[in-house]
């Protein structure tokens, strides 16, 4: 729920090549838009934005040109190997308004028995912009086979509601099945059907 203050710089030059140069300097291009104000192209230091994203922060304070805007991290673009952030979209929000936001679910502890089915990795919450939780913890150490945790069982901070149906399953623990591992034929010597070949042959006949 911590709100980070992000010091950003306004970007005067935009475009692919300038963005690439920014990334080589250890910065991440970003955009700030919303609330009826003009969109602004920004750049933010990579070592500032990356920990904030990794920590699961959804709402941050953006400080530039002497003003501070409250903004929601709308979208993060990662590179192929999930090592660098390529671009961040920030949406201005009203600090007193309620917003809909996806928040990650983290499992705490380990299941003592059975197989854990983790159905919902994130939930959409409706909460005040100043009190967006970084994550929702679900304790699974006390679960037994056949037990399940639904959205209704989630422990949410005060003033936070979930937009999903209360009976949506988050985690279910079921018995481990004995599976027979059989090597399957990979189709050596067999050829697939050719699309359009059968129709052509019919016409020839």
């Amino acid at each position: 729920m911590a709100t980070e203050v992000l010091a950003v710089e306004r970007r005067t030059q935009i475009g692919t090549s300038h963005s690439r140069r920014l990334r080589l300097e250890g910065k991440v291009p970003a955009n700030l838009y919303g609330l009826g104000k003009d969109p602004v192209a920004l750049s933010v230091a990579s070592d500032v934005i990356t920990p904030a994203v990794m920590a699961g922060h959804r709402v941050i304070d953006v400080e530039f040109d002497g003003t501070v805007d409250k903004a929601m991290i709308r979208e993060v673009q990662w590179d192929t190997f999930l090592t660098h952030i390529l671009h961040v979209d920030l949406q201005r929000i009203d600090a007193n308004a309620r917003i809909d936001v996806d928040v990650a679910i983290h499992l705490r502890g380990t299941a003592n028995e059975g197989v854990l089915d983790f159905h919902l990795h994130s939930v959409e919450l409706n909460c005040p912009a100043y009190a967006v939780p970084d994550q929702i913890d679900v304790r699974i150490g006390t679960l037994h086979i056949g037990d399940q945790v639904t959205v209704a069982d989630l422990v949410l901070p005060e003033g936070v509601t979930c937009n999903l149906p209360a009976d949506s399953v988050v985690v279910r623990l079921h018995e481990a099945k004995d599976v027979e591992i059989v090597q399957e034929d990979v189709g050596a010597g067999v050829e697939p059907e050719l699309i359009g070949r059968a129709a052509d042959e019919d016409e020839d006949a």
């Binding site: 697939p192 050719l194 359009g196």
Partner: peptide
């Protein structure tokens, strides 16, 4: 079940080159 397509448009394909990263 065989691990290959059920239906194909062409039986054979050229080898080609694998360029770039997965998107």
């Amino acid at each position: 079940m065989a691990l290959m397509p059920r239906r194909v448009k062409h039986r054979k394909s050229q080898r080609g080159r694998i360029k770039g990263n997965a998107t």
